[in-house]
C-alpha cells in the first residue's frame, strides 16, 4: 500500500506528515531543523513512520517543501512552501481565503481562490520582525521561555504599542518599557500586536482569513487578538504547524510535485 508523505524542512522546525489514500493523517512529527537539514528530515520522517507504519511495510511517495527541500535526496518531488501551505489550507477550508502563515524565519500572506488555486503571495522582507525568530529573540530578552508567551499575553492588563520594524530596535524599545516599569505580560501582548501589524501590512486581509504556522500553533491568544483587530473570525486548521507538510503530502498523493 502507498503512503504519502510531506516533509517541510523549515528554518526552525522540520515537520513530517504521512497520509493514506483517503487523505487521513496516519503519522506526523515535529523536530528542530538545526544545522543539518538532511538529518532533521530523516528524524522527522522516521518519527512519523513509527506512528503510521510500525512494521515498516508501506511504500512512501514523498514531497519535500520548506527552505531545506533540496537537501533531501530520497524525495519524489519538491514544491515551495507557498504552494504547500495553500494546498493544505484549502483541504480544510474550501472557499476563497487569505492565508497567513507565520513561520520561524518568514511570514507569508497567500491568496487561495474558491477552486483552491493558489494566487498571488507576499513574503516578509529580509527582516525577521513578525516571525517566530522575532518572538524567540524577544523571549530571550525578557528571560521567559518561548512556551510561556501565550500565557503571559493572556494575562496582560493593557495594550502597549511596540512599533519598530526591526527586531533589534524592538528589543531596544522593550528596554525602554522595562526601564519604565512596564509589566512583562503587557510587553508580550505588545509584541503579539506587533506580529499582527507586520502581517496586516503585507497585503489586504480579504475574504475569509486562515492562519497557520508554528507561531499560531503555540500562541492561540495571538489568533484571538488578530480576530479582535480585524473584527472577524479567523480559521485555523488542525495541527496548524503542519499545514505545509500536509499540503506536500497531498501533492504527493495527487502526483503534482515538480521534479525532485
Amino acid at each position: 500500500m502507498n503512503y504519502f508523505t510531506g516533509i517541510d524542512v523549515g528554518a526552525s522546525a522540520t515537520k513530517a506528515v504521512i497520509i493514506n489514500a483517503e487523505k487521513e493523517v496516519v503519522g506526523y512529527s515535529v523536530n528542530n531543523s538545526g544545522a543539518d537539514f538532511r538529518a532533521a528530515s530523516d528524524t522527522a520522517f522516521s518519527k512519523a513512520k513509527k506512528n503510521a507504519d510500525p512494521k515498516g511495510s508501506e511504500n512512501y511517495i514523498i514531497v519535500a517543501t520548506g527552505y531545506g527541500r533540496r537537501n533531501i535526496p530520497y524525495v519524489d518531488g519538491i514544491k515551495t512552501e507557498i504552494s504547500c501551505h495553500a494546498r493544505g489550507s484549502y483541504h480544510f477550508f474550501r472557499n476563497a481565503h487569505t492565508l497567513i502563515d507565520i513561520g520561524g524565519q518568514d511570514s507569508k500572506v497567500i491568496r487561495v481562490d474558491v477552486l483552491g488555486e493558489r494566487g498571488s503571495f507576499k513574503m516578509n522582507r529580509k527582516c525577521a520582525a513578525g516571525t517566530g525568530a522575532f518572538l524567540e529573540e524577544i523571549a530571550n530578552r525578557l528571560d521567559v521561555k518561548l512556551g510561556q508567551l501565550n500565557r503571559l499575553a493572556e494575562k496582560a492588563q493593557k495594550n502597549i504599542e511596540i512599533g519598530s520594524y526591526c527586531t533589534v530596535f524592538t528589543a531596544t524599545e522593550i528596554l525602554t518599557k522595562i526601564r519604565e516599569g512596564e509589566q512583562v505580560e503587557n510587553i508580550v501582548k505588545g509584541i503579539f500586536n506587533s506580529v499582527i501589524t507586520r502581517a496586516i501590512e503585507m497585503d489586504p486581509m480579504e475574504n475569509n482569513i486562515v492562519m497557520t504556522g508554528g507561531v499560531v500553533a503555540y500562541n492561540p491568544f495571538l489568533v484571538k487578538m488578530f480576530e479582535e483587530k480585524l473584527g472577524k473570525k479567523i480559521f485555523v486548521p488542525p495541527l496548524p504547524q503542519l499545514t505545509g507538510a500536509f499540503g506536500a503530502a497531498l501533492f504527493a498523493l495527487e502526483g503534482k510535485p515538480t521534479e525532485g
Binding site: T80, E117, R118, G119, F121, M123
Partner: peptide, 20 residues
C-alpha cells in the same frame, strides 16, 4: 540586501503559480 534563499523561494513559488 539580498537574501538568496528567500528570493529563490519567491521566484520558484511564482513559477508554480504560473503553472496553474
Amino acid at each position: 540586501c539580498f537574501s538568496e534563499e528567500q528570493a529563490k523561494t519567491n521566484i520558484e513559488a511564482f513559477v508554480e503559480q504560473l503553472e496553474v
